[in-house]
């Protein structure tokens, strides 16, 4: 089982572009989807699944595998698309998202191969990841546990209960990533419930903190691969992102939180993805 599984013809950039287009397509389905927050975390997920995580779709129950939890479970479509590209489920299955008979619910469920635990109610993932990291420590394994949090999610007090516990338990095989896109459902986090100085807050809780451009794949991969950054401390990577990244007509607007793309806007979105070709 190795971490790097990118086929020769694919680059991290081309994978991220494909995952992004799957997400856009899913939001053109009957139910729509959490488009903005899915698009903001695609580079994080791509870096994790194609460069960092030791996971194997053929042996998804291997006890020695790394664990990943999508604590911001509303970005399920991004996770499903990533898991599909990584070989956990057929890419064609993504077309069934939200439709009767599909197993792809609006928040991640364990019925989907590669999903470790269901998430969606905010503020649950960090404690769960602490438990997974503790279990690995008890078992004497050096596997790592990763968890992706939303920035608005940090308003949930339970996140900080778990942040205290992770530092107190010295869980240095635990790595959190914050998708710092700056927007929550109705507006900017800094207007609704200010979260800055975010890095200092985590540092004060005993975590090793790094700040990075959350759409820069090589940087994301390097930082995530290198954790733990400080012995005895859990790591948190603050990924500075843009909500709705890749779609200029929606990016950076709170209104992109939940979107059902009309046929016209779907076509517009596909055009945008093609014209920027892999966005960057």
């Amino acid at each position: 089982m190795t971490g790097v599984q990118v086929p020769v013809r694919d680059t991290l950039e081309s994978l991220a572009a494909r995952i992004r287009s799957h997400v856009v397509n899913m939001c053109a389905g009957p139910e729509g989807g959490h488009l903005g927050g899915a698009l903001s975390c695609i580079e994080v997920l791509t870096a994790l699944y194609f460069s960092v995580l030791k996971v194997d779709p053929q042996r998804s129950d291997d006890p020695a595998r790394d664990r990943f939890l999508l604590s911001k479970g509303h970005a399920a479509i991004a996770l499903y698309a990533t898991l599909a590209e990584r070989g956990f489920l057929p890419v064609e299955e993504l077309a069934g998202y939200g439709r009767p008979g599909s197993r792809l619910m609006g928040h991640p469920v364990r019925a989907v191969p590669g999903v470790e635990l269901p998430t969606g109610s905010l503020g649950h993932g960090l404690a769960l990841a602490c438990g997974l990291a503790l279990a690995a420590r008890y078992a004497g394994r050096d596997s790592r546990s990763f968890v992706l949090l939303g920035d608005g999610e940090l308003q949930e007090g339970s996140v900080w209960e778990a942040a205290i516990a992770a530092a107190s338990l010295r869980l240095d095989r635990l790595v959190a990533v914050v998708d710092r896109n700056g927007l929550q459902l109705t507006g900017p986090t800094e207007r609704i419930a200010p979260m800055e100085p975010m890095a200092e807050r985590w540092r004060a809780f005993g975590w090793a903190v790094r700040d990075v451009d959350g759409h820069d794949l090589p940087q994301l991969a390097d930082h995530l691969a290198a954790a733990p950054w400080e012995p005895g401390r859990p790591s948190v990577l603050i990924a500075r992102t843009v909500k709705g990244h890749g779609l200029p007509f929606l990016a950076g607007r709170a209104a992109n939180h939940y979107v059902t793309l009309s046929p016209r806007n779907h076509a517009r979105a596909i055009d945008a993805l093609h014209s920027t070709d892999a966005v960057r």
Binding site: L117, L128, G131, G157, S158, E161
Partner: peptide
């Protein structure tokens, strides 16, 4: 020994960590 952990006064965290531990075979 290490089979006892006092996590502090945080009951949601208690249940979450317990679930993660149980998912990891404990």
């Amino acid at each position: 020994g290490d089979q006892y952990l006092n996590l502090g006064i945080a009951e949601h965290n208690l249940m979450g960590i317990a679930a993660g531990l149980a998912a990891g075979g404990r």
